[in-house]
Design a protein around this nucleic acid. Structure first.
Length: 292
DNA sequence: TGCCAGGGGTTCA
DNA sequence: TGAACCCCTGGC
């Protein structure tokens, strides 16, 4: 993976294991738009860029070399060798097949607080509605982001995801009535305020082991095993996490267990089998389950 | 048009 | 272990 400036365009070349579609559509992120020209527009840490795949590489708009290196390089996990990970996981023939469907998946490193709230919203919910709620939440409580460069001809406004202070200005009633989050309203408000006041130290999880982090997260109302695993994987890059959602459950039962199996058994089996690469394996399986 | 199931789970009994 | 949960969408 190389970053170059060509004809006044920022462009990623020697692209290795990176597909925009596979990376954004594998269920880990909610804050992106797929544009009509096939390009993608993610929002992260109060910034917006647009990425478009071309035969010459991936063209990146609305950023510069410094910002890309500082903010986006890490977000896309470009320092990790996915070729080695895929090779390792492919000793399992089932995984080899799953990986062939999503060779270009990368696990994003997203903001802790945003990831936490987003996956609380995701509980017993569907992706289009989750995306809509997160977008409305950002619009109402976040800040508007100035876009310098034309982003794929789009004229929409962009908003940063609210920080704990901003989201704490809400009330549970407001979240329920205006954002239509239903029974998740109290959970969201409560967690936002626990983070704001420091009752829950969200940064400290980065220095914890996977097990410690999971235990800490699950003390929060609205965070069960699935949500905790997602937050640890997509926020804190704890790749021993193996989130079991309905899709992973389905495909694991189909391919490995050959019968109905409790989520806990599936999660333990995945962690045992894939070890430090569990999170990657889970993403390949999730994408495979939805695409096959 | 109207009813019903089900959805990237979690909680409470 | 099992039902309820806000709300929305798609299928009949």
């Amino acid at each position: 993976m190389k970053l170059e400036l060509k004809n006044n365009n920022l462009i990623l070349t020697d692209v290795d294991s990176f597909s925009l579609r596979e990376t954004f559509e594998c269920g880990q992120a909610f804050r992106f738009y797929r544009e009509e020209d096939g390009s993608y527009t993610p929002i992260h840490r109060g910034r917006v860029i647009n990425l478009k795949e071309t035969p010459d590489g991936v063209i990146v708009k609305n950023t510069d070399m410094d910002e890309f290196k500082e903010v986006w390089w890490d977000y896309f996990d470009f320092s990790t060798d996915y070729g080695a990970i895929k090779k390792h996981l492919s000793v399992d023939p089932i995984m080899e097949e799953a990986i062939s469907y999503g060779e270009g998946i990368r696990i994003l490193k997203q903001d802790y607080f945003e990831t936490l709230i987003s996956f609380i919203v995701s509980a017993n919910n569907q992706i289009p509605r989750i995306k809509k709620i997160i977008e409305e939440m950002s619009k109402k409580y976040g800040r508007r982001i100035e876009v310098k460069e034309d982003v794929a001809g789009s004229d929409r406004d962009f908003y940063s995801f609210p920080n704990p202070e901003e989201l704490s200005l809400s009330t549970a009633d407001e979240l329920r009535e205006e954002l239509r989050v239903g029974f998740r309203a109290e959970r969201i408000w409560e967690v936002a305020n626990k983070v704001r006041t420091g009752v829950f130290d969200i940064n400290s999880l980065a220095g914890m082991t996977y097990e410690e982090g999971k235990e800490a997260l699950m003390t929060l109302n609205g965070v069960g095993p699935k949500v905790a695993n997602c937050v640890l994987l997509f926020g804190y890059s704890k790749t021993t996490a193996f989130p079991v959602d309905v899709w992973v459950k389905r495909i694991m039962e189909d391919l490995y267990f050959k019968k109905e199996t409790p989520n806990k058994i599936i999660e333990d089996f995945g962690k045992e089998k894939f070890g430090d690469l569990s999170g990657y394996a889970q993403q390949y399986l999730f994408y495979y389950a939805r695409e096959r």
